[in-house]
Design a protein around this nucleic acid. Structure first.
Lengths: 140, 140
DNA sequence: CTGTGTGCAAAGGGTTTGCAAGTAC
DNA sequence: GTACTTGCAAACCCTTTGCACACAG
């Protein structure tokens, strides 16, 4: 069973070769946030404009989400199975490694209880962490 | 006593008219994150390039910091008095209002205790919240 | 006076839009 | 066949760099 095909079907998106390639890239890096730069380097034969449109389509459909981290570069990461177009369930933390530059989705670091000032209504919370990741720590 | 002059002195920056204008803008919006777009609209007579350089200088000196929020636009906010060049003490939360688009610094919503997977070293944590702010809630 | 800041021009990088041709369903 | 997707060109916006002039200290 092809996971990529399944995801596109699930989100009612056409299964074009390009979309499948991009999606497989995310599936192979399911715990990381990917920059467009990285995606471009990983794709054999690509058109940058089509890539931007594909990412936007994926994001709108709930296939991927923008990973909020402390870098100023936009990073995209695979959504959970249960994300839909208007209900992104990506409240887990994103960790930017200051050494290797990778952004990791830390599924287990969930949003802690937050107390807002009165009259503020909370709809989403993202924890943007930075430091040194486990693999960089292991090398030193 | 002029607060703007004082801040520039404190950070050993030259007190040019332009810098004072920009800094006053931040002082008048001390709890908000400002976009370059907003700053440009607020300044009478400005050069965009100089503005970018001023913001970068302020950031490096610890006068302002980049406010991490869920918008994809860079926003700058005034630092605490005790921020220095290499020690930004801006671990408070940033709240993006989905209605008015304002970003608020919530000084009282501090970073909660975070438990990272083993071998991860934490150096900074930013809480990026979104929802509806108090003034928008009041109007509905 | 000296080193820093400013203003202008130009360039760079990321991202979006328009449109014709191609393709999934 | 029809609606959506792709690929190319061009444009757009934000941001940076280089350099001569102006100005703060």
């Amino acid at each position: 069973m092809d996971k990529a095909v399944q995801i596109l079907s699930q989100h009612k998106l056409r299964k074009t070769p390009f979309r499948l390639d991009v999606l497989k890239l995310f599936l192979n890096n399911s715990t990381k946030g990917l920059t467009t730069h990285y995606i471009e380097e990983s794709l054999e034969d690509f058109d940058r404009i089509t890539l931007y449109r594909t990412l936007k389509t994926f994001e709108k459909s709930g296939v991927i989400h923008v990973a909020i981290d402390t870098s100023q570069t936009t990073k995209y990461a695979l959504c959970h199975d249960d994300c839909t177009a208007h209900n992104h369930l990506d409240d887990h933390a994103h960790f930017l490694c200051n050494q290797c530059g990778e952004t990791y989705c830390l599924e287990n670091v969930i949003r802690p209880e937050i107390t807002l000032p009165s009259d503020y209504t909370l709809s989403s919370a993202h924890l943007a962490l930075s430091g040194i990741c486990s693999s960089c720590n292991a090398q030193s």
